[in-house]
């Protein structure tokens, strides 16, 4: 780090210093990794079907514990956030919803980091939280 000053993975720490867009970038990475691990775990879980009904049932029981419920709630949140933010990014990265280039006037406010984009991020986080609450409600029969 000293000579080349490469931030590396450390650059992902403290995302709030660059605003909500960097937080969304950070969450996108974390949820992406989380979903990848879930996907691998899911393949392992469903592969237990090959070992018969008893093996499958004992695997399902794992998800009926408190830890299992917390894990599945996190999966729901990760899934909703990653999907919502992914759609926002696909639209923005195609050059839409960024505003128009204009002569910069002080104080400079970047139009690509506009309210539309910020609102989308906040709504996606909100939707993920709502989905997690709904999931908890279903799992605990509330």
């Amino acid at each position: 780090m000293d000579k080349d000053r490469k931030e590396g993975i450390r650059g992902m720490a403290n995302p709030g210093r660059y605003g909500i867009e960097r937080v969304a970038y950070w969450l996108m990475r974390i949820t992406g990794l989380g979903l990848l691990f879930y996907f691998i775990g899911h393949i392992y879980e469903t592969s237990s079907l090959l070992d018969g009904k008893a093996a499958w049932n004992s695997m399902l029981e794992l998800t009926q514990t408190t830890e299992g419920h917390i894990f599945l709630t996190l999966v729901i949140g990760m899934c909703v956030f990653h999907t919502g933010n992914g759609i926002r990014l696909m639209i923005a990265q195609s050059g839409f919803g960024l505003g128009k280039p204009r002569r910069p006037d002080y104080p400079y406010t970047p139009s690509s980091l506009n309210m539309k984009n910020k609102l989308c991020i906040y709504v996606t986080i909100g939707l993920a939280a709502l989905a997690m609450m709904y999931g908890l409600g279903v799992m605990y029969d509330v």
Binding site: E21, G95, P110
Partner: peptide
């Protein structure tokens, strides 16, 4: 990945994040 930090810190209001996404528009 459109984290937007480049535009956040630019002292001249250049908004590189916007330019990059616009460029993608050309390529797509």
């Amino acid at each position: 990945h459109f984290a937007g930090s480049c535009s956040q810190v630019c002292p001249k209001g250049v908004d590189p994040a916007m330019g990059i996404q616009m460029l993608r528009g050309y390529l797509l």
